[in-house]
Design a protein around this nucleic acid. Structure first.
Lengths: 331, 331
DNA sequence: CTGAAAGCGCTTACAG
DNA sequence: CTGAAAGCGCTTACAG
């Protein structure tokens, strides 16, 4: 059988309260002798705190629930969870993730999560999007990650897409590039925000963009949509040849690499290539290794947990976290 | 305040026991009228079951803990978790993952997990390896995923590396390939088992392998180790040119693609390429899309949960799960 | 068919 | 400095 405080109390000849104080109440006053004795017996008996029992007393379990829309499969999603997890564990909390599969209403998933009486709940989106949390649910979610909550009742953490795009364009400009094309991800929020930043940075430098092109035909970006990348690259090369191509993500960059190789062009000597994502396994293995803007997923996770666990909550707001430039050799 | 069974009982004019029976005890006998009334009131009050309270009574929480060695970052790890999660949720369980960071002993992580009084605990390795569970801990882990437990006291689920290698080689042979080289991942268990399968399948067909070459110099495979892939490919091309190259993983295949492109060779017309992993984002975006053996991560997760939740535990054993051939266009 | 009570393992006032 | 008791919200025998 699993042993309890009262087992220890009995063995030590003290009350349960004393054992509880000795083991957990850091400030509980008692003789050092008693405390040591109790601890020794607990150790000897292999006592493991029963968090469920503590939880029923306190009204919550040291758990933080993360409900995410769809698959937690993407490397980005796991970065978010890692950020959350790191911050949570130093606070003695565990993270449990529940995904909000297509069939279910967000309300029912949240109910599922609430049954565990978690200390806090976060909502995480798999890609940067707008999310409408039903008004009745706004109270039970402490922070939204990677999405903008429409009503403004919940603090939302998102990547600063526009700023990230400005930064990478400035970097290309600083490297002497002037004829810059952007093969963007169409139909998603990140794409339109990045396009803004792309144009703003060029305008600020007094330079005309060579154009912004969609990586796929579909209005919504998907892995399965037929790629337009190589045809764009070919068209660009036979026209006003760019000296830099900015890509919507590392996979698009991979296709650009292939198209440039076919055309006999060298990276970065003939054309620089840069992108967004920093999917490490891919970006670092390309030849040459790809310069790319890393998304602040880990940082969003960490900050989310800090917000959740902070005593004094700030008023709800939208917080944009900066991308991080990973310089490799493609620029 | 969060409302409890007694709030409902009071409002309904029945005992707490009746409420509990009406809401949760499927088989509890009572008038249909009472049951409906109780349910209606619960709904109206927005009652949410308190799992912590139930947990303290039953001795366990409907949680399954997964402790993994190191980063849950890899796409494979998340597949394992997805497999676990799917099976868990249909049993009303939530999965909480705790990673076993380098600083900590496995025992202390397991203690952390046990504090939640989970229904069951699994251990998952990030890549196929041998793991030595301290004898005292063997009892608290129900199943080992993606690793072989040395003592044999715990059921272990691993990919059938040898069988997977045999299958892909037979597939290459069936496609008429005869001069097959293998650029393998050195220094890891999966690599040596696959080499066995590779050689066995060729021998069974009465064909000599063109050779097995390490993808990296380091004895242990790592993302940062300098790649030997392109030099192997060049050497192979200038010698006894292969008609098929089997790769240790999709990233190695990506490098092989690049080396073959540089040499002006076409896939699969001149040389077929196949590999292990099925990292979808990569494999499906290569040109031509890559034929590759998918690891049974999801299946391991699902089976693990079934084993954990099964009433009658089988005696501990080692179970090898089959790979799954994903045919694309590179063979 | 339903109630009153005991008990799960904790923590927190309340007393000494 | 320590104990005895109450109580968190459930479920499970024990009675009727």
């Amino acid at each position: 059988m699993t042993i309890s405080l009262s087992d220890i109390a009995e063995r030590a000849g003290v009350s349960v309260k004393t054992v509880s104080g000795a083991l957990h109440g850091g400030s509980a006053r008692m003789s050092d002798e008693t405390r040591q004795k109790v601890k020794a017996i607990a150790e000897e008996l292999g006592y493991v705190t029963n968090l469920a029992a503590r939880g029923v007393r306190q009204g919550w379990l040291p758990l933080v629930g993360v409900v995410s829309d769809g698959l937690i499969t993407s490397p980005f999603a796991t970065e978010i969870v890692r950020g959350l997890d790191g911050a949570a564990r130093s606070a003695g909390m565990a993270v449990f993730a529940v995904n909000h599969s297509s069939g279910q209403s967000i309300g029912s998933v949240l109910d599922e999560v609430q049954q565990f009486r978690p200390r806090a709940v976060a909502y995480a989106a798999m890609y940067h999007k707008d999310v409408d949390l039903p008004p009745t649910l706004a109270g039970s979610v402490g922070v939204m990650i990677n999405c903008r909550e429409a009503s403004g009742r919940v603090t939302s953490l998102v990547p600063d897409e526009e700023g990230g795009a400005r930064e990478i364009v400035r970097y290309l400009l600083a490297a002497g590039r002037r004829r810059i094309a952007f093969i963007n991800l169409p139909g998603i929020l990140a794409g339109s925000l990045r396009e803004k930043g792309f144009r703003a940075a060029l305008e600020e430098a007094g330079i005309d963009p060579l154009g912004v092109f969609p990586a796929v035909r579909r209005s919504v970006y998907s892995d399965r949509a037929p790629s337009l990348v190589s045809s764009h690259v070919e068209a660009l090369l036979s026209g006003q040849r760019p000296d830099a191509i900015l890509c919507g993500n590392d996979r698009v960059a991979m296709e650009v690499y292939a198209a440039l190789a076919r055309a006999g062009l060298r990276i970065p000597d003939d054309i620089a290539v840069a992108s967004f994502d920093n999917q490490v396994e891919l970006a670092s293995r390309l030849d040459p290794p790809l310069t790319t803007m890393a998304l602040p997923h880990r940082a969003m996770g960490r900050l989310a947990m800090e917000i959740l666990l902070a005593g004094q909550p700030e008023p709800p707001h939208l917080r944009q976290l900066p991308f991080h430039l990973v310089e490799r050799a493609s620029v």
